[in-house]
């Protein structure tokens, strides 16, 4: 399978603290890549360096390269706004804007200059359908997004990300704030979406990674300890530190 993203020797420093240590890996196209590891291991930093959201944190320094389709996203000529349009992100807690369902999904297209109402309606419907939410909200698009349940909000947020037609989807623990049923729905959705997108998901839930990911990377102390096919990583990890973490003998 073709690699959508190639990461080469990526190190990230928050001031004096080194959050990532020379991470080198590749993210496959049209597949789910899960990142696991204990809290503070660098997996979220890795995710947020892919769309340069870590730029928002003062005193951050990045070394190494991240190639998205052969363009280094940290090279000087790169337009961060365009990069972030191409790399969609879903966060840990559902964070719809305090606007209507329609305006939430239309937000991205609008800021990127789409103002034709008919076209907007098409995009909104299509995105909501792809996020498996359309049937539940088609009659109340003008209602506040905050009236939706947590699981619906998370699917809305996914629809919002899909509306700008990204090349990659990043998800930062997308189900950790949801009940098991809603989480299951999101997992199903992720499995469907991988037919179209490469998806990178950070999760604390190893079973979730085992269920939905094709590839899994294990981070520890800012280091990518092991990266392998999910099945292999969870049944027969090669690195003793992965083994120790997976069997709960870590630390």
């Amino acid at each position: 399978m073709a690699d959508k993203i190639r990461v080469r020797g990526l190190s990230v420093y928050y001031g004096e603290l080194q959050a990532l240590r020379r991470v080198t890996t590749s993210i496959a196209d049209r597949a789910v890549t899960a990142l696991i590891g204990p809290s503070g291991c660098g997996k979220t930093t890795f995710l947020r360096s892919l769309n340069r959201l870590i730029d928002l944190i003062p005193n951050t320094r990045v070394e190494g390269q991240i190639f998205l389709d052969d363009v280094d996203v940290y090279s000087p000529g790169v337009d961060v706004v365009d990069l972030r349009r191409r790399v969609g992100m879903v966060f840990q807690t559902p964070n719809p804007f305090p606007k209507s369902i329609f305006d939430n999904v239309a937000y991205g297209p609008r800021i990127h200059g789409l103002s034709n109402q008919r076209r907007l309606e098409e995009v909104v419907e299509q995105s909501l359908r792809r996020a498996a939410l359309w049937d539940e909200v088609k009659d109340k698009l003008r209602h506040s997004a905050l009236d939706l349940s947590g699981g619906q909000q998370q699917r809305l947020v996914i629809a919002r990300a899909l509306a700008v037609e990204p090349d990659v989807l990043l998800m930062d623990e997308p189900t950790s704030a949801l009940d098991p049923i809603s989480a299951g729905r999101i997992e199903e959705l992720i499995t469907e979406l991988k037919a179209e997108y490469p998806i990178v998901i950070v999760t604390h839930n190893m079973q979730q990674a085992a269920r939905i990911a094709d590839w899994t990377g294990f981070f520890l102390h800012g280091e990518l300890v092991e990266f392998a096919e999910t099945e292999r990583l969870f049944t027969a990890p090669k690195e003793p530190r992965t083994e120790a973490y997976l069997t709960g003998r870590y630390g």
Binding site: L53, L56, R85, F97, P98, K99, G108, V157, R160
Partner: peptide, 25 residues
């Protein structure tokens, strides 16, 4: 902060984020 991040992650500029998300809220 998550609202700002959501907006920025969609490719909005800082000012668009302030105008469309932060100030209304």
């Amino acid at each position: 902060r998550s609202l700002r991040e959501a907006s920025l992650a969609l490719g909005a500029t800082r000012w668009q984020t302030v105008r469309e998300v932060v100030l209304p809220s």
